[in-house]
C-alpha cells in the first residue's frame, strides 16, 4: 500500500465535494422533522433531483437551470407525500417508502436516454486572494458555488429556527401539534411548506451528485445517500450545526475509503465499499445508546383536527 499517493490537500477538497449532497438533503429533512413529519422518501426525492437536474442541464447547457429544475421537481414530488400524509392521513413510514420507490422508478424512466452523456458542470469560484493562498486556498476556497451555498443554508436554517417567529411556530408544530392548533396555527399548511422545503433541498442534493460530484447519470446513482442523510439527522439530534458536522464526517469516510481503494490498501474492497454504511450503523448505535435526545415530540404522528 502506498499511502503517500494520497494528497491531503486534495483529500480535504474532495471531502467538501462529497459531503455537499448529503448535507443539502439532511438539512432539508431536518426542517421537515422539526415540523413533526418523518419523510422517508429522501432517497427518492434525491434521485429525482439528480435525473431532472441532469436532463435540464444537458438540454439547456446551463447547470444553474438544472439545479433550479431539480429543486422544483423534487419539491413537487414531495408534495404528493404531503397530500397523502397531511390531507389523507396515511401512514408516514409507508408513504415515505412509497415515495422512494416511485422516485427510483421515475428517475430511471426519465434517465434512460441520458445514460453515458456528460453534462456541463458548475465552474469553480475564483475568490481572489483567498483561492491563491497556499494549501488552504486549494482546500477550502476553490470550490463551486453550491458548496458554499449549502453551508450558508445551514446557517440560515439554524438562525431561522432559533431566532425568528417562523422558526418558533415550526418548532411548536413539531413539538405539540394539538397545542399549536389550539393557538390557531395552521398545522397542515405549515407542515406542507416544510415538506416542500425538504423536497427542494433533497433535489438540490441529488442534482449536485449528477452535475458536480460524479458528474454523470447512472441508474440508482444515489446509492443510499438519502438514507444516510436521514441517519445524519438522527445523529445530529435535530440541530443544524451538527447536521453539517455529520455530513462532513460521512463525506470524509466516503472519500477516504475511495482513496484507500485506489492506493491498494491491504483491506478487502468489500469492507471498504461497505464502510460508509457500516459507519452509519455504528454512529446510530452510539447515538441511540446515549438515549434519544432532541427528537421533536410529535415526530411521525398524524395530525387530525377533530372538529
Amino acid at each position: 500500500m502506498d499511502l503517500s499517493s494520497i494528497n491531503p490537500v486534495l483529500l480535504v477538497a474532495s471531502i467538501m465535494v462529497s459531503a455537499t449532497p448529503i448535507l443539502l438533503a439532511a438539512i432539508g429533512e431536518m426542517v421537515v422533522e422539526r415540523a413533526g413529519v418523518l419523510n422517508l422518501g429522501v432517497e427518492g426525492m434525491m434521485i429525482t433531483g439528480a435525473v431532472v437536474g441532469f436532463a435540464v442541464a444537458i438540454n439547456t447547457g446551463n447547470p444553474a437551470l438544472g439545479f433550479a429544475a431539480a429543486a422544483l421537481a423534487s419539491a413537487v414530488l414531495s408534495l404528493s407525500f404531503g397530500v397523502l400524509t397531511q390531507l389523507l392521513l396515511s401512514n408516514q413510514v409507508a408513504t415515505g417508502l412509497g415515495l422512494t420507490l416511485v422516485g427510483l422508478g421515475l428517475s430511471s424512466l426519465i434517465g434512460k436516454p441520458y445514460e453515458g452523456m456528460k453534462s456541463p458542470t458548475l465552474p469553480k469560484l475564483d475568490m481572489g486572494f483567498l483561492s491563491d493562498l497556499p494549501v488552504v486556498g486549494r482546500m477550502l476556497f476553490s470550490h463551486d458555488l453550491m458548496v458554499y451555498l449549502s453551508l450558508a443554508l445551514v446557517i440560515v436554517v439554524w438562525a431561522v429556527l432559533k431566532y425568528t417567529r417562523i422558526g418558533l411556530i415550526l418548532r411548536a408544530v413539531g413539538e405539540n401539534h394539538d397545542a399549536a392548533h389550539a393557538l390557531g396555527y395552521k398545522v397542515v399548511r405549515i407542515r406542507m411548506m416544510a415538506i416542500f422545503f425538504g423536497g427542494a433541498c433533497a433535489g438540490l442534493g441529488g442534482a449536485y451528485l449528477s452535475l458536480v460530484r460524479v458528474p454523470q447519470w447512472t441508474e440508482g446513482m444515489t446509492a443510499g445517500a438519502g438514507w444516510i442523510a436521514l441517519a445524519i439527522v438522527v445523529f445530529a439530534s435535530w440541530r443544524a450545526g451538527r447536521v453539517a458536522i455529520g455530513a462532513y464526517l460521512f463525506g470524509g469516510v466516503t472519500v477516504l475509503q475511495l482513496n484507500l481503494q485506489a492506493a491498494g490498501a491491504a483491506v478487502p474492497v468489500a469492507l471498504l465499499s461497505a464502510s460508509p454504511y457500516l459507519m452509519t450503523i455504528l454512529v446510530l448505535v452510539f447515538i441511540s445508546a446515549r438515549g434519544a435526545h432532541g427528537a421533536p415530540a410529535s415526530l411521525g404522528r398524524p395530525f387530525h383536527a377533530s372538529a
Binding site: 412509497g98 420507490l101 416511485v102 422516485g103 427510483l104 422508478g105 421515475l106 430511471s108 424512466l109 434512460k112 441508474e219
Partner: peptide, 8 residues
C-alpha cells in the same frame, strides 16, 4: 423502468 414506477 416504467413497470417499477407502475408498482410504486
Amino acid at each position: 423502468a416504467s413497470i417499477q414506477l407502475f408498482q410504486g
